[in-house]
């Protein structure tokens, strides 16, 4: 959109915005607020709780200052008649109080922080009825590649997760430092080249949540977004099935397009997909085995050595990874393969 067009758009929408401003300001932290103030997962919910606890505790120090400063200013104003003692500079009891109160608060906070930090450690697996779903994430310049190793599929632009099932993310970057973040679900985690970081989240409610990159990595940074779709198990199975059937394999050509600078939409355009789809979702039906670790190791991906070279040649290896997924959704086999994957990921 041209700038003038945008300005016009802005003014046309002006009234609505003014109304919106008033509404949001009036309703305070409105129910419409995205992010962890409106948590959709247990991690985000705990974080919101911590947030308010910390505020409540620190308020014990802050409130006296906010209230008493104006009072002092008024009472001891120049033209007032309050007592004036220019040489008074010390009171033992006041000293003791003003050291004791913050020390006490920090002591309480420290205990609290120590516990909560362990509890919400993103590396710590989340307990759940079902075994965690493994997802590997690779950060590229301005897009995320979501690999489902046990399903043998991958997506760009949309992360589909089953609701109520713990998700275990392994993340690395094929580019510079990035930070992977789904505010409504919980923690963000840095994503670094040649390193794997871990993150565990769980969605408690079905829905569509914004996901983003928080660490500036160039001009397309603000477009490095995706939609997280938390769905029930059936829908998830359906998604896996549909991706396998309708997606394209992640072959060398596709990979090169992904590895170029650009956002999801650029990839979709380069692949000749429909870019009017606002989410620009790209489905990849098969992924070379161990792609994530190859990227993490930083060895240039040698497609011939990987033995999965693009569709027409993709015989043996492709079938190897597709085998377990063809046995499909029996969860025991998934759990086995996922733990196998896990051991490989963390030698």
């Amino acid at each position: 959109m041209s700038v003038t067009g945008r300005t016009r758009y802005f003014f046309r929408q002006g009234n609505r915005y003014v109304l919106l401003v008033l509404l949001v300001l009036l309703s305070g932290c409105g129910a419409d607020m995205p992010g962890f103030m409106n948590p959709q997962g247990q991690v985000a919910e705990a974080q919101r709780y911590h947030f308010w606890i910390v505020i409540a505790l620190v308020m014990l120090v802050v409130i006296p200052v906010i209230i008493q400063t104006p009072l002092i200013l008024w009472r001891y104003r120049y033209r007032g008649h309050a007592v004036y003692r220019p040489k008074w500079y010390m009171s033992r009891w006041l000293d003791i109080t003003m050291w004791a109160v913050p020390i006490l608060i920090v002591a309480i906070l420290s205990v609290y922080v120590w516990r909560q930090t362990q509890e919400l450690d993103p590396y710590r697996p989340i307990a759940g009825d079902q075994p965690p779903l493994e997802i590997q994430i690779v950060g590229y310049d301005w897009k995320w590649l979501f690999i489902y190793p046990d399903q043998g599929i991958a997506t760009l632009g949309q992360l589909v997760i089953p609701v109520d099932r713990p998700i275990s993310f392994s993340l690395t970057s094929a580019s510079v430092l990035q930070s992977f973040f789904i505010p409504a679900l919980g923690s963000q985690i840095d994503v670094m080249n040649r390193m794997v970081t871990r993150l565990h989240l769980k969605a408690d409610h079905p829905g569509r949540f914004e996901g983003k990159n928080m660490q500036y990595n160039g001009e397309g940074f603000h477009r490095q977004r995706f939609i997280t779709r938390a769905v029930d198990d059936d829908t998830f199975a359906e998604f896996v099935q549909r991706t396998r059937e309708q997606g394209r394999p992640l072959d060398q050509d596709t990979y090169e397009i992904i590895a170029q600078k650009g956002d999801n939409r650029d990839v979709a355009r380069a692949l000749g997909l429909d870019t009017r789809d606002s989410d620009a979702v790209i489905r990849l039906s098969s992924v070379p085995n161990g792609l994530f670790h190859t990227i993490m190791d930083g060895s240039p991906i040698d497609w011939s050595a990987l033995d999965v070279s693009p569709p027409q040649l993709g015989t043996t290896r492709t079938s190897v990874i597709q085998n377990p997924s063809n046995d499909d959704t029996s969860s025991s086999s998934e759990a086995a393969s996922s733990s196998h994957q896990h051991r490989k990921a963390q030698p």
């Binding site: 974080q47 911590h50 947030f51 505020i55 120090v61 802050v62 906070l109 909560q116 919400l120 930070s179």
Partner: peptide
């Protein structure tokens, strides 16, 4: 003095690792 204590409060919030995972960056 009035505004700084508020900043101090948000500083403590940021210093809480579990919350920092949300508001960092």
């Amino acid at each position: 003095i009035m505004l700084f204590v508020l900043g101090g409060m948000t500083g403590i919030i940021l210093a809480t690792p579990s919350v920092d995972y949300q508001v960092h960056n």
